[in-house]
Design a protein around this nucleic acid. Structure first.
Lengths: 260, 260
DNA sequence: GCTTAATTGCTCAATTTCGCTTATTATAAG
DNA sequence: CTTATAATAAGCGAAATTGAGCAATTAAGC
């Protein structure tokens, strides 16, 4: 059985019941206790469940609703984590940073540095994850834009959102677009694109976070041209091609995240 | 059975009934008396229950604000659900309603009626729960205030929050205070109190949602007097006393939720 | 086809938890 | 006040959980 299948079946069981211990999981999946424990730890590290001695516990409230979404986030998960980690490496103590909503930027929650930082976002999920994980460390300041909830994406949108965002200034904007090609960056959602434009306009520097699935892909809404982008963070080096030429042309700093 | 599972089930039983003795716990959990006692001691040491000779007692006199959120949500859980359900019964199609953050109002997510409704809140948890549960039904419109995240409470606070809220008008404000007594309603948190004041000012009618633990209890911040309250929703009838007299004096409509 | 990396199941020592027994203490009844 | 009953705390051995390390297998990449 594939690891992913085990993980999904564990989470399914967790949705139905509230707890799962090693013995039950063994009967359910047929895997050895060692593997079950590794799975439990993995799920807990991903923030999909809570590890306890002897078993696993379902996360309540915000978290349990995030499950289906969390699985979509599984595509290029390691790449996205490396990208998020690299993005955090750009920051210095005291920075204020806009963070766009998206599965890549969601990973940022796991790599928050432990120096003072202010994070402004329109992503409900990111705010929820940060609230859970960094409740005690007084270093992190999270600001959420207002607006109407776009339920599917867990994103705040609309005029109230763009207006609130426009009242802040930041050192960085971390944008996670739907696609990027030689003509600029794109998003599938018009409202999300509007928020991204505001963030880019109000930030001193703009970093675009793009996993391999985003490269050379255009979507419906063009957010901006490449000229407004200062840094592009990708999982690997681009390896030439017209996109790399266009990025160099637009003086975009290329920043391949170190995959170990 | 996992230790944590035992602990949670003990607390659940304690929320439903008020007492739990060793013998009952043995029948409920199947663990030995020694283990039960250890669990009881653990819970008492964590401040989640009160140890008595022969068993465990639910905490009544502790102020909610001092306790972790996950535990607050479990206290009076059935009462809170009934209250939330009753509050939803006040609404008519097309209404716009402010919903305050809190463990009681969180329950509202479970009883959203299926007619058109706009819900404005500063609670991250409520917004997340609503987003997940009512993503497809196009009837529900969720608006989130902006502001700084108060991580422990999952609440948005601060000037940005009150300002965003003040730009909306609603038919109802559902307020979930920390306490209510003859002098008015209270909250443990200064920022949360400020948001509540704005919601009350901007709504046509104000309903206060109070579980039994909130009655006749004052906290640090006084949000307002009873005169600004139109309806009080409780789990049971008040059964006389000075609080009931004061509420009648202030022309507050009393609305005991039907506990089955 | 070969090499590399990831996954899996196993073992082992350290720690934690569990249930039993016993001595002590608290409550209740005479 | 004294005694009887029940509950508790402490100690102890057995069992379970955990993390680490290791070899074998499998899948993936060049």
């Amino acid at each position: 059985m594939i690891p992913l299948e085990r993980h999904e079946r564990i989470l399914e069981h967790l949705n139905a019941h509230r707890f799962l211990n090693v013995e039950q999981a063994n009967a359910l999946l047929g895997a050895s206790a060692a593997t079950i424990r590794r799975d439990f730890s993995d799920l807990a590290n991903k923030g999909l469940a809570q590890r306890t001695r002897g078993g696993l516990r379902r996360l309540e409230q915000v978290e349990d609703g995030a499950l289906p979404y969390a699985f979509r986030a599984g595509r290029f998960a390691t790449e996205k984590a490396a990208i998020a980690q690299a993005a955090m490496g750009l920051l210095t103590p005291g920075n204020v940073v806009f963070v766009d909503g998206g599965t890549t930027t969601q990973q940022i929650a796991r790599y928050i540095p432990d120096f003072p930082l202010t994070l402004i976002t329109n992503s409900l999920r990111l705010a929820a994850a940060l609230g859970e994980q960094h409740a005690q460390s007084g270093n992190l300041h999270v600001v959420l834009s207002g607006g109407t909830l776009h339920p599917e994406a867990g994103l705040l949108v609309g005029p109230q959102c763009t207006r609130t965002l426009s009242e802040y200034r930041a050192d960085w904007a971390f944008i996670s677009p739907g696609g990027i090609d030689i003509h600029g960056i794109y998003n599938t959602n018009e409202d999300a694109a509007a928020s991204e434009r505001v963030m880019m306009a109000q930030a001193a520097k703009v970093a675009v976070l793009a996993d391999p699935g985003k490269l050379n892909r255009a979507s419906m809404c063009r957010v901006s041209g490449l000229d407004l982008v200062d840094t592009l963070i990708t999982a690997r080096t681009l390896g030439g091609g017209p996109l790399q030429d266009a990025l160099i042309e637009a003086a975009v700093e290329l920043h391949p995240a170190g995959m170990k």
